[in-house]
């Protein structure tokens, strides 16, 4: 067993884990944060995407011990209390989800796209950047719309404008 310490959704956690424990297992089974899903085990589907030190990572093929000292954000840490993150709100508004299973990973990946590519995203860019996330329900049509809208809503000042 190995001791691992990390910050998950702003809270410091320390646990004794089997060194082969994957980050996805760690958040699901040790922390009971079950919003992070495992869809394929081979890092193809992206249902398990979380942020490690601000970057999107497929947690089903990341060892928990490799995240020692890191700051991890899961889907549960995205909203500010009852107030949805703009990307979450955009997925609801644009019907970017059906069964909801790929959704946490899709939203975490989408936020990462915005962090890397900015707030104005065209359809082509969004489709290329979502390459690592599989959705079987939506045909991506509404996910693309949601990411485009969510990206705009994440721009500094966008929320203030929307609230006015």
């Amino acid at each position: 067993m190995t001791t691992v310490t990390m910050t998950v959704n702003g809270k410091s956690v320390t646990a004794n884990v089997d060194p082969r424990t994957l980050l996805a297992q760690f958040v699901r089974e040790h922390l009971r944060l079950t919003g992070t899903h495992v869809g394929c085990d081979t890092s193809q589907c992206g249902a398990c995407v979380v942020h490690v030190d601000g970057r999107a990572v497929k947690s089903c093929t990341t060892l928990a011990v490799s995240c020692d000292g890191a700051a991890v954000t899961t889907i549960e840490g995205l909203a500010n209390g009852a107030e949805l993150h703009p990307m979450q709100a955009a997925f609801r508004e644009h019907h970017g989800l059906q069964c909801g299973f790929c959704t946490p990973g899709m939203i975490m990946a989408a936020v990462d796209i915005v962090n890397r590519k900015g707030h104005v995203l065209d359809e082509h860019t969004i489709r290329e950047e979502l390459e690592g996330n599989i959705c079987r329900c939506t045909g991506y049509h509404n996910i693309v719309k949601a990411v485009e809208a969510g990206a705009r809503a994440m721009a500094p000042g966008a929320a203030a404008i929307a609230a006015e």
Partner: peptide
């Protein structure tokens, strides 16, 4: 139903 899914509470 979306709220629980987009917040990881499904």
């Amino acid at each position: 139903e979306d709220f629980r899914f987009i917040t990881g509470q499904g």
